[in-house]
Nucleic acid binder design. Structure first.
Lengths: 366, 366
DNA sequence: CTGAAAGCGCTTACAG
DNA sequence: CTGAAAGCGCTTACAG
């Protein structure tokens, strides 16, 4: 394939159209200072030669590459969110005539290499950083990059960013569980060392805040970290199922993990929501079919808005460096959350478990 | 952020190192014809100025961009597969020192635009096409691209490609269902007009072949097309559940769709695998927790191998233009497939349904 | 409205 | 082993 014919250059087009290279350049970029006749001849010649602009050549003189880079964790970490956000970015950028360069970082070695070499440097007009918890040095390194940086799916104070209010969203979801009467609410998240990823920290904060607000005591053992990879969630659920006091609800960091929790609970014969309520985060396309209660956010919008911020910064480099967009979330109650089983309250109020003090009428929240 | 300091050029490095630009260029590329001393001074100067190479400038003279483009459908179409394959590609390319340019096409308009403008043209050294069913014109258009094309997740005869043997894989899976005693096996797939995507055609062929081989009659109504988007799978399952003769098993195009089928069946109170077996395709990370029987394939390997083919073609442009890699699949029996209910055979052998002729001892396959 | 010329930052013969 | 020079394919003042 790939007939190795020489690609036509502007000089070829110019010759064929009977004009100078300058005129070809102007005509093709749609500048007004070209006569209709010349423009016509140029366009025809370009089409006939199937001319394509060499961005290398033009960016050498303009200093603009026409490319935007994005740095992401391996997409298999959160396929739906990252994949959809990436698609949104691509869509937004392509409307702005910008190409998308993707840097995927799947482990610490690649991460170190990225920040060491900064390959995006001089090869992109801007960088989007998605779902990365950066260290202070990494952040400073990016400041030296020489191109604007936009953070997506994370709130970077003082920098351009697009994000959801994870604290408020998690708070709202957990409050729903409390309103249903739950008093022993676990939180399942990815292990911190695997937490390449995003807003999990804030969701934990929101969870904690909701418990505190309701006067529920804090219990470390209810926050479980699942290792990334097969079996991680099963082991984490195992931890919860072997606690002295069984939680009656779990708030899970993402829908994808929540689906897995549902599968594990089913295989253990634990009825959802009869014995345990499960609440996710995302409103993944499968959530509806799974009847999963969840907190919806739009990954697509996150990507689009990040692309939009990039365009806006490129167009207006001296505007507010901390411009940002907050993507809304909304809680969607479905079938996996319900009032806790009657005996759950009985147990905790009856015995000397650590939860005795928190026991209460399960309906008081209503 | 983005202190707009001028980026250091090779001339700056040369001045600082006290050598010529040529020597800087040679030293930085690791050419052997540089004295250790000069190499040393250049490397230090480059580091101190945090020099980064302008690919635009070097590609202008070498004719190589150092970039490989990939064309994909919107990742939300098959988040796990496309996201993981993309990650594998990025990983493979980055080892080869190549950047990844992503073109996502989410609808017909974008598709037409891509093939009309061929933005990858002159801006990438190669193009990977993933999970796209191309028309004849599109394929020819790509031949005019002037760069090598590698097809991923699809078998393109005569072109470089990496793929799984979908026919054999589907055949094997469906044979398993037949061996279990199923005689009324449905197949659920994405609606054809939404089939931006891959190997679905071949899976249908494998399904058909297995039925034929087992002497089962062909029944069009057992092949259901789900529209893309929310509710599509539910409606498709609804079709199956209202057939005169209920199928006892469904082979689903992908695990992600199969999960949805499981959710819908559960919400309808139909026991899996008691009343209906469900077989997926992919071995999605969730499949284990969902206890879904499936046919495993490695999206990661598909991406890696595609990147490998690109490297090999770039290194050896005159090798076999049809070089290809076949990624293995393997059938994984889990809990969603089992023998059909006893009465299923009874019904079909008893009455004048279209399936009467095919009725048989459900165990004969063993 | 148009063209000739300079120059963007590299790599690559070529000469030494 | 090293450097001066040409040139990759564009865009952009500048002059007309």
């Amino acid at each position: 394939m790939a007939r190795e014919q020489r690609q036509a250059t502007m000089a070829d087009v110019a010759r064929k159209a009977g004009v100078s290279v300058s005129t070809v350049s102007r005509a093709l970029r749609g500048l007004p200072t070209v006569s209709p006749d010349a423009r016509d001849r140029v366009e025809r010649a370009a089409r006939e030669l199937s001319f394509a602009l060499s961005r290398s050549a033009s960016s050498l003189v303009t200093g603009k590459t026409g490319r935007v880079a994005v740095l992401m964790p391996g997409l298999e970490r959160a396929p739906w969110f990252l994949g959809t956000a990436l698609t949104g970015m691509a869509s937004g950028l392509s409307e702005a005539g910008l190409d998308l360069l993707v840097y995927v970082v799947t482990n610490e070695a690649e991460r170190a290499e990225f920040f060491d070499r900064l390959p995006a440097r001089r090869n992109a007009d801007a960088l989007m950083v998605t779902s990365f918890i950066l260290t202070e040095e990494e952040r400073e390194r990016l400041d030296d990059l020489g191109v604007p940086v936009v953070f997506a799916s994370q709130h970077a104070p003082g920098r351009a960013s697009v994000y959801v209010d994870d604290v408020a969203a998690a708070h709202q979801g957990v409050r729903h569980l409390i309103n249903l009467g739950h008093r022993h609410i676990a939180h399942l998240r990815l292990a911190v060392e695997d937490s390449f990823v995003w807003s999990a920290q804030d969701r934990l904060v929101g969870y904690r805040r909701a418990l505190k607000e309701a006067g529920l005591p804090w219990d470390d053992s209810l926050v479980v970290h699942a290792e990334y990879g097969r079996g991680g969630v099963r082991r984490a659920v195992g931890w919860l199922l072997s606690l002295p006091q069984l939680p009656t609800a779990v708030f899970v960091e993402s829908d994808e993990m929540a689906f897995e929790v549902l599968g594990v609970l089913r295989s253990c014969g634990i009825d959802v929501p009869g014995r345990m309520s499960v609440l996710g985060f995302d409103d993944h396309p499968l959530a509806e079919a799974m009847d999963l209660s969840t907190i919806a956010q739009s990954a697509w919008d996150t990507g689009r808005e990040a692309a939009g911020l990039v365009s806006s910064i490129l167009a207006e480099p001296c505007g507010d460096p901390a411009r940002h967009v907050v993507i809304p979330t909304r809680f969607i109650p479905r079938g996996t959350t319900a009032a806790p089983p009657q005996d759950a309250a009985a147990v905790s109020s009856g015995g000397g478990t650590q939860w005795g003090a928190a026991s209460a009428d399960p309906t008081e929240g209503f």
